[in-house]
């Protein structure tokens, strides 16, 4: 490899720019001053205590977990159907159907939220966590489909044929051969959808009827300077949580590639 000191220092500088706001999280989450300002005062765990004693925050976190788990489960299942069908079978209308499924990737989220909201209001459906879930599933499913499509594609089809030749039914083959081989892809899709849903703001805000949901709650709290330090503590916890989840997803993805004998070719996207 050629040395490129200028490019390398630029890249490190760029990383610093990317991480700059995030680095502030732990710095001020443990800082005993009420205002976010240098120089730092003393070390404290008060903000974490305040965060854990905040009842509304607890409700919001619980709601967000319910939403994210439901959304991740539904989109992963829908993703398995769509990815398996598109990789394995040819059928009429495949391109428009897949196009519609992937459409939310190229559609501003606000438009999805508003279109759904207009219909729900016209039909008189009350807004609830349930409406947030059905809305978010639209946004996360394309990600599940993308990850699962590459998982199904790397599958060796002769293994399935061998199982069928040995007398397994189509469902038996899928359950015993295909599913275990794409399991890492399924786990990765689930984790990615979970993360996206947990962070999602627009649909949670507009389809949620004002119920406390974590992202919406955080957004509201940042307006009050007195609340900022405990929000930074919360941010610190969430960042650690995301990194652990992502590390796990990446590990699963790599294991999947190793299992099917492929070569590692980059990240999630």
């Amino acid at each position: 490899m050629k040395k490129a000191p200028i490019l390398k220092s630029y890249t490190l500088f760029y990383l610093l720019f990317l991480y700059a706001p995030i680095i502030l999280l732990p710095i001020f989450a443990f800082n005993s001053s009420k205002v976010v300002a240098f120089p730092l005062q003393g070390f404290t765990l008060d903000w974490f205590r305040e965060m854990f004693s905040d009842e509304n925050l607890g409700i919001a976190a619980k709601n967000s977990l319910i939403i994210a788990l439901s959304v991740a489960s539904i989109s992963t299942v829908l993703g398995i159907f769509a990815a398996r069908a598109s990789v394995r079978y040819r059928f009429p209308g495949k391109a428009p159907i897949m196009g519609l499924i992937m459409l939310p990737l190229v559609l501003p989220e606000m438009i999805i939220a508003m279109a759904l909201l207009v219909v729900l209001l016209s039909l008189g459906v009350p807004l609830s966590l349930f409406t947030v879930i059905i809305g978010q599933v639209l946004v996360t499913t394309p990600f599940a489909v993308a990850i699962l499509t590459s998982a199904f594609q790397s599958l060796d089809r002769s293994l399935e044929e061998a199982a069928m030749d040995l007398g397994e039914t189509a469902w038996g083959t899928f359950r015993l051969i295909v599913l275990p081989l794409v399991m890492p892809g399924i786990m990765a899709a689930f984790l990615i959808c979970f993360t996206i849903s947990f962070d999602e703001f627009i649909i949670s805000n507009f389809l949620g009827s004002g119920q406390p949901i974590l992202s919406v709650y955080i957004f509201g709290q940042f307006r009050f300077p007195a609340k900022v330090p405990s929000m930074l503590a919360l941010g610190t916890v969430l960042v650690c949580f995301s990194i652990i989840l992502l590390g796990f997803a990446e590990y699963m993805r790599r294991r999947g590639i190793a299992k099917t004998g492929g070569k590692d070719s980059g990240g999630f996207l």
Partner: peptide
């Protein structure tokens, strides 16, 4: 992959 809301609010 870390919370978009928090990143924006930190700004």
């Amino acid at each position: 992959w870390t919370s978009y809301i928090i990143r924006v609010s930190l700004w």
